[in-house]
Amino acid sequence: MLSIKNLHASIDGKEILRGINLEVKAGEIHAIMGPNGSGKSTLSSVLAGKEDYEITEGSVTFNGKDLLELSPEDRAREGVFLAFQYPVEIPGVSNINFLKTAINEIRAYKGQTPMEAKDFLAMVKEKQKLVELDGKLANRSVNEGFSGGEKKRNEIFQMAMLEPKLAILDETDSGLDIDALRIVAGGVNKLKSKDNATIVITHYQRLLDYIVPDVVHILYKGKIVKSGPKELALELEEKGYDFIKEEVGA
């Protein structure tokens, strides 16, 4: 589904990603871990199409399409979803209206007619339950005045509504208490299918107790330096990132 080859990206002339290689297949969950400044958030921003970054080398193919050639909105329409680490507030725009716009834009891209209001509301109801989102939040302005946990839960709610093929969760666990973490992770697990894939970006092993990855990658200084089964996360938790530094001889 997703194939990243030798991806280099820099911002303001500073190289952050230095040759990422990653293959993600449908039905898989990949975890990307790494210390601060290793390039985790850059990777998610680059995949979503944030324009601040310059791609200097490499390629990203998504379901046969050159992802880097697509605008951010077209990537979303093709089925890429980024759950933001810091979701943005949009005052005065209700969550519902925001999502309806998004869904209908995606449908228009696929040549489909706008969703019937009745079907849309039924979908809202169903997906809200899935992520245990308070019905009132759906009617409030996008993320405005939401608590940290509510914002993250709202990201997963949006993900549930947009039904992406590839979801990238950028430190979705940061700032969550244990109950919120369980709910958010529960939502992700329920959305998992053999047709979609998830990339979970995180600092801590904790999230991976709830979302069990097929593969764990360790990102360090802009490169994936080690990949392994889910036990790798445990090893990392135990030994800290220093063992990686030693291993790669940094």
Binding site: A48, G49, K50, E51, S71, P72, E73, R75, A76, R77, F81, L82, F84, P87, V88, I90, P91, G92, V93, N97, F98, L99, T101, A102, I103, E105, I106, Y109, S141, Q158, L162
Partner: peptide
């Protein structure tokens, strides 16, 4: 904000529509 626009785009909403949404919200 660029980040507001990017947020909308990352949900499949293009620039024009995103501005419309944000401005209408602002004027609500």
């Amino acid at each position: 904000g660029e980040d507001q626009l990017f947020y909308c785009k990352s949900r499949g909403i293009d620039n024009e529509k995103a501005i419309g949404l944000i401005v209408n919200g602002y004027c609500k």
